[in-house]
């Protein structure tokens, strides 16, 4: 048992850590978020036992919806075994005693930072995003009083000017992640810092999407089957990142790849960012061009060892 686990055992903490009053407050905010897709609902975010920036918003949302029969998948950068994913998964194992999984299809609740699984999510799933800056207009207008007015008036001119300036300067829109979207033809929303590659997945997604920003004290949501449009211009349509090569380990195409530096001589490979997707494919016999490379094997194999707990 880790030190952290012992600390939780010492204290008398409620199921999923939060007290019931806090859960009710968060639950009410979630319902409003669902009823007003893309609108950021203010909520009295609590201090959590992990720092702001580590996913306190996502953790609070997950803690508020989680039941004892849920099965939780926790990912960071698309992977189940990155340090913070391990830490947050452990938090819920300790405080809620619920089942956890690496398998996307087995999970009823998926909490994520920066990625959406490659596999299509289903009607029975909820995906919870950790959000650092929920306000899509924040970097154009730092004042909350102003951005709130803009949302109220549906005045998104500033955002279009910014995107257009990108095009004028670069010939294309120079936003690669946290790419703004318009939800249900009304609210401009920040899809959290997922690469824009994932934007098409949140359009008409079968699963319910909940977004939690702890430090900024906002919750927002996209119900299933909701129109989500990435902002663009008729002559400069939205497009996602494309990778020239398939995943070096499993050979998958049309997935998001991480670049892994193999040595100090320029050796590198591109592998699936969604580690569970990659492992399932390899288990099913798919082989990528570098699957036999010893360095690659070491990288691809590390998470499986961890799975065997």
């Amino acid at each position: 048992m880790s030190d952290t686990a012992e600390n939780y055992d010492q204290g008398e903490y409620n199921f999923a850590y939060l007290d019931e009053q806090t859960k009710r407050m968060i639950r009410r905010a979630i319902l409003k978020g669902i009823a007003i897709p893309g609108y950021q609902v203010p909520f009295a975010s609590r201090e959590m036992p992990m720092p702001y920036g580590w996913g306190t918003g996502g953790v609070q949302v997950t803690a508020a919806i989680l039941g004892k029969d849920d099965c939780l998948k926790m990912i960071d950068q698309g992977s189940d075994d990155t340090t913070n994913a391990v830490s947050l998964r452990g938090f819920f194992e300790k405080t809620a005693g619920i089942r956890t999984t690496y398998e996307t299809s087995e999970a009823t609740v998926i909490q994520t930072r920066h990625r959406i699984p490659e596999k299509d999510l289903t009607d029975d799933q909820v995906i919870v995003f950790q959000v650092p800056i929920p306000e899509p207009l924040r970097f154009l207008e730092p004042r909350e009083t102003e951005t709130r007015k803009m949302h109220a008036l549906e005045d998104y001119g500033l955002m279009h000017v910014k995107l257009y300036e990108d095009i004028a300067k670069n010939g294309h829109i120079a936003t690669t992640y946290a790419y703004p979207v318009k939800v249900n033809d009304r609210y401009v929303m920040d899809p959290s810092p997922t690469p824009k590659f994932d934007n098409p997945k949140i359009d008409e997604m079968a699963a319910l999407q909940l977004y939690g920003a702890g430090r900024e004290k906002r919750i927002y949501a996209i119900p299933p089957y909701t129109k989500v449009k990435s902002l663009d211009f008729e002559d400069y349509p939205f497009e996602v990142q494309k990778f020239d090569k398939p995943c070096a380990l499993c050979g998958a195409r049309n997935v998001y790849l991480d670049e892994v530096i193999l040595d100090d001589r320029g050796g590198r490979m591109f592998v699936c960012s969604d580690s569970n997707f990659c492992e399932e494919r390899r288990a099913a016999g798919h082989v990528g061009p570098m699957a036999a490379d010893p360095a690659a094997v070491q990288i691809g194999g590390s998470s499986q060892e961890e799975t065997a707990r």
């Binding site: 409620n14 199921f15 019931e20 859960k23 009710r24 639950r27 979630i30 319902l31 669902i34 009823a35 508020a64 919806i65 989680l66 039941g67 004892k68 319910l208 949501a221 119900p223 299933p224």
Partner: peptide, 19 residues
Amino acid sequence: DPVHDAQGCFRAIMDVMAR
């Protein structure tokens, strides 16, 4: 069971609000 009954009820409300 105030904790789990409320959670179950909430999930039902959340589901119907979302659908």
